[in-house]
Design a protein around this nucleic acid. Sequence first.
DNA 1: CTGTTAGCGCCTTCAG
DNA 2: CTGAAGGCGCTAACAG
Lengths: 361, 361
Amino acid sequence: MTSERSVPPTISEVAEAAGVGRSTAARTLGGYGYVSPELRERVLAAAERLGYRANALARSMSTGVSQTLGVIVADIANPFFGGVVRGISDASRARGFDTLVLSTHEDLDEEIAATNVLIDKRVDGIIVASAALDVASAGHIEQARARDIPVVLVDRAVPGLDLDAVVIDNRAAAREAVVRLLDAGHRRIGFVWGPPVQERPRRRRELIDIASKNLWTDGERLQGYLDALDDEGIVFDADLVMVGAKTEENAQAEVTRMLDLPEAPTALFCTENDAMTGALRALRARGLRVAADVSLIGFDDSSWAAVMEPPLTMIEQPTLALGARAAEVLFAAIDGEAGSTGLHTLVTRFVDRASVAPPPR
Amino acid sequence: MTSERSVPPTISEVAEAAGVGRSTAARTLGGYGYVSPELRERVLAAAERLGYRANALARSMSTGVSQTLGVIVADIANPFFGGVVRGISDASRARGFDTLVLSTHEDLDEEIAATNVLIDKRVDGIIVASAALDVASAGHIEQARARDIPVVLVDRAVPGLDLDAVVIDNRAAAREAVVRLLDAGHRRIGFVWGPPVQERPRRRRELIDIASKNLWTDGERLQGYLDALDDEGIVFDADLVMVGAKTEENAQAEVTRMLDLPEAPTALFCTENDAMTGALRALRARGLRVAADVSLIGFDDSSWAAVMEPPLTMIEQPTLALGARAAEVLFAAIDGEAGSTGLHTLVTRFVDRASVAPPPR
DNA sequence: CTGTTAGCGCCTTCAG
DNA sequence: CTGAAGGCGCTAACAG
């Protein structure tokens, strides 16, 4: 039975209806303190009759706890972040927490604004896949911590920031992928996707410098690529690295450019989904076959990759687990468990399918 | 400059620091009422110095407005819902609202719990892709409305519920797809995906009955399929409809079953992403080629569909727009604009690529 | 224009 | 074990 009135009943009204004091009603409805079975019954009945529901805002107001987690990601429409958010959401629900999700379009100012919103709404903790590149640009995160709001990073670490970060080992995963290509006999391997440098870096040193000044994941993956090349003593060729915007169109354009090189790459390492689809478009346009003509390995497995012809070899990221783990780490901090802050690294899975073959000829 | 204390300063402290009354501080910081430029300046300076930020909870408490929208979807990790949520999120932000997102795993009980959470947190409005099949199972939605919280449905309408619903015309889109297949000469067309019936329906009437008792989108798409068949006077064959769980595995199994029929389908209409990938797996396992042997049309375009060989003909849903529109309609309701409730239908786009060809032989 | 005075709904001492 | 009273931080009438 619910009352028809549109203003919800308060605990005082329930108390009155039950003929008891406010605090007695509050104690039984809030589930704390002692109440005699008899009164308890009466209160419960009255609450039921009036359709009482506690006002979570008022409760947060006096307890100082909102039972809400704040989540900041670049783009909730990106399946990768969708998985992370779902992992966070499920783990939170299990603890009775809800999640306020904000998308920042990979813009630092939006991220700062989002952080302020979360601080203002008094969330109990924040999980952020930050666009901040270094400590200097992470002032908003310090701000939250200064207000005693625990923060954990997910997907992207921020070098120099002493914070818990739940990530994968991008560098090792990238290195492994490129090693596979190397093992298959490839020597000219293209690197498709960020960092989004505008000018083609001449020297290797320059590239590493750029990598360290861009999105952490991009930099790490690029490093992994270079690591693998180093293993084989292959000199880095700037022509084989994509430059410019991180879009599918540009990936296609850059791969096309590489394909037209005198010494074209025989393999491509795509560090993101759109890099892979862009590369595939470029191959098709040039009439080249996957594996037979150009080998391919990509990041972020999906069910589509498995049904391509040939099926694509991919690196799978544990999106749900990243989110779930981030939530766990955050809850530990909320509970005041002084765990050592640092990197929590989850393992990726190398899904070996059929897009890698020896170079042609 | 931010103070180092972890308990945030209140408006009273700012007032004191500025040497003015609370309400003067409140007026300037809250941006309402009159304040002399001089005092205003002093208050602002004090607020800045103390690092003041308004407590949104307290504000909501007294205004009764939370500047927060509640969003309920089946699975935030599903790219379709990811797009919808992103659309909602962007449109909300533009109005200064934030979104509390809850995933229900397509479970009605979880949806009911989620609705209660949103009611308790006093969101100003709710957008829900409901798992409710009819008015009888939509009590929680009525509950929210009884508490004067506007609700708008997105993606899925609930037959009989007098509520705004922002959707696409699933029936027409499905019909168009099947008509294309028919026009290409196909007569045996398989329907892959829900409704998740367990027993194979014998009669057409039975099927329609089932369709009307399941997820609205599934039912509508199935109706569209039947509509197209009717146009050509083709009798519905129960063997060509998938039954059982809505999973990629089962889609593959069911398509395999159809392919092994004495009169196998020469075309397949897949109403969801996993239906398409399942179907593709089945074709591959049987050594059949897309288009040449079996024509294909699917729902929910993605960049992958464009790079398949051959590129897949798909129906594209405007996910961002669905979310954005739902938010607009909700804001209209929040603003008290008494628009007529009903269906808001957005258009889909038929992306004609190359997975449809005449039947073989 | 400014400051005082009440609440918003809940939790939390504190006597009784 | 119960009820009265005060406070969380803010907004909102209301006099001055």
